[in-house]
């Protein structure tokens, strides 16, 4: 019996060594002959880039540069930041993807493009405001929305960002002013919702997300009319006219309850009374008469 077991162990050992020999030959192949697959993939990308139109080339480049970062070693600190071709100023921070928004799934992080003069400002707001905040209004006689922060990573309700308080703290002393608070990148966004039976729910919940995700997966199997139908259904709650800037940036009754959402008093005042409103006024009065009508100015 012992002899038999020894024999089996020996055979298994030999089989293992044979397997290792084959694997080693396979492993060494690219080290001797180069990583052919990688070179081929690069060549095919290059070919695609060369053969195609400017748009195709840009798409190929986007795929190749996806999430490209740039490292800078200062000796006492390494800065790893996103890379954007042709950009001079350092960015420093990456932006957390918004997994909680159904709109971002198709429209992306930088969705505003129509109002040429203010599109950058609108995109800036899209970093901490869910699309629904400005693009879905309550009905005429319906009660006002409730607003909460949702976590970008999960889409779930979260507490008011601590960063808002940290920003405030940075104004307190000369020493704290040397710190650099992060504006607008809170890992969370404000979105509207309703309170049902004492529980808050966002206008777009997990079911809506599942619905949109399914549409994205299945859209190639739909006919052109069906696609139009689906788009209509998905966008049916979107208001024709988006929320105007001065609905929030005003002192009397701002549309967003800033204080309730965790904005400290000084910041609320800044947003509703002094610098920001002042700038909007400048835009409105001296620069772009239509500043307060997003969507009204075309390229």
């Amino acid at each position: 019996m012992v002899k038999f077991i020894k024999k089996v162990i020996f055979k298994l050992y030999v089989i293992f060594l044979m397997g290792f020999t084959v694997w080693y030959g396979y492993f060494m192949y690219p080290l001797i002959f180069g990583f052919e697959g990688k070179e081929k993939a690069e060549a095919s990308l290059m070919e695609l880039g060369k053969a195609g139109t400017d748009k195709e080339r840009m798409f190929v480049k986007l795929i190749a540069e996806k999430e490209q970062t740039k490292k800078t070693d200062l000796g006492y600190r390494v800065i790893d930041q996103p890379y954007i071709e042709g950009r001079f100023h350092n960015i420093g921070i990456s932006v957390e993807p918004d997994n909680g928004s159904i709109c971002v799934r198709c429209h992306g992080n930088v969705p505003h493009d129509h109002s040429k003069e203010i599109r950058s400002f609108l995109n800036m707001h899209a970093f901490y405001l869910g699309c629904e905040s400005c693009h879905i209004m309550p009905g005429k006689d319906a009660p006002a929305w409730e607003f909460r922060w949702y976590k970008k990573s999960t889409g779930e309700v979260t507490d008011n960002p601590v960063a808002l308080v940290e920003i405030e703290d940075s104004y307190k002393t000369a020493e704290s002013m040397r710190k650099y608070p992060m504006y607008g990148n809170y890992g969370a966004k404000i979105a509207p919702g309703k309170i049902k039976n004492g529980t808050f729910t966002f206008l777009h919940d997990k079911n809506d997300m599942a619905f949109v995700n399914r549409y994205i997966v299945e859209q190639d199997h739909l006919g052109p009319e069906q696609k139009s139908q689906m788009k209509r259904v998905i966008h049916d709650s979107v208001s024709k006219k988006p929320l105007q800037c001065d609905r929030c940036h005003q002192k009397k009754s701002p549309y967003l309850p800033f204080a309730k959402l965790g904005y400290p008093l000084r910041r609320v005042s800044e947003l509703t009374d002094t610098s920001v409103v002042g700038m909007i006024r400048k835009y409105k009065e001296f620069y772009i008469p239509n500043f307060l009508t997003p969507g009204g100015i075309k390229d």
């Binding site: 748009k55 840009m58 800065i79 954007i84 071709e85 042709g86 950009r87 100023h89 350092n90 960015i91 420093g92 921070i93 932006v95 992080n109 930088v110 505003h112 493009d113 599109r119 950058s120 400002f121 995109n123 800036m124 707001h125 899209a126 970093f127 901490y128 650099y180 992060m182 504006y183 607008g184 990148n185 390229d299």
Partner: peptide, 24 residues
């Protein structure tokens, strides 16, 4: 100072206007 101050230009390039004060 806002990280999201950005747009896509007519050539499809992403233009970011954010200034990281600390790195500056």
């Amino acid at each position: 100072k806002f990280r999201g101050l950005s747009r896509i230009d007519k050539d499809g390039k992403f233009r970011l206007f954010y200034i990281n004060q600390e790195l500056f």
